[in-house]
């Protein structure tokens, strides 16, 4: 009878520990989906051959990647992919100074052509380098950092403003069939 005076208590001090264990389990197993990447738009399917466009060579910066992952930019070999960013910037902002590069930012085209044997990693780093060049140019134009620019929504006003007069024209040609 003496015991009944006091309400019986369950020792719950270890409850926190149990909860912690579960928490840590979920923390460790959670994988936040990494839905980040490089966005491109494929050309629509055409049944007949597209009309031949008359674009002078100097408007196009041709980037060729062979099956050994070597780069050829406007017929000059390039050792590092990282140099491509500067080259693309020079090409877009050339405004007719160098006769081998574009005459105006809105006419500049970057053409990327790979081989079937090119590794995907190399292809992606080339795309990345070209993207970097354009993102930096756009960010400069808006006066923000490239990282801030990448956070912008496609439909936002600023994004459209940046693209105006300097559209990103990247042509991804179908690969050649030489390497395996």
């Amino acid at each position: 009878m003496r015991n009944s005076k006091k309400a019986p208590e369950i020792n719950s001090s270890s409850m926190a520990d149990i909860a912690f264990l579960l928490l840590i389990f979920f923390l460790v197993t959670t994988q936040f989906a990494s839905d980040k990447g490089i966005l491109i738009q494929l050309p629509p399917k055409l049944d007949e051959k597209p009309p031949e466009l008359e674009i002078p060579d100097y408007q196009i910066l041709t980037v060729l990647i062979n099956s050994y992952d070597n780069l050829l930019v406007n017929n000059d070999p390039m050792k590092e992919v990282t140099d491509l960013t500067q080259k693309v910037k020079d090409h877009v902002l050339n405004n007719g100074v160098d006769p081998t590069l574009s005459t105006a930012p809105d006419k500049a085209i970057v053409s990327i052509k790979s081989d079937r044997g090119t590794t995907y990693e190399m292809y992606l780093s080339v795309l990345d380098a070209v993207d970097q060049a354009y993102n930096e140019l756009y960010a400069d134009k808006l006066g923000i950092t490239p990282a801030e620019f990448r956070e912008l929504d496609n439909s936002s006003e600023e994004y459209q403003k940046a693209k105006e007069g300097m559209p990103k024209q990247v042509s991804i040609a179908e690969p050649t069939d030489i390497g395996g």
């Binding site: 839905d35 990447g37 490089i38 494929l42 795309l127």
Partner: peptide, 15 residues
């Protein structure tokens, strides 16, 4: 994908 008219592509990559 071009034939199937799914033209938006994302190459997943890690930062």
């Amino acid at each position: 994908l071009r034939k199937a008219n799914a033209l938006k592509i994302m190459y997943n990559a890690i930062q």
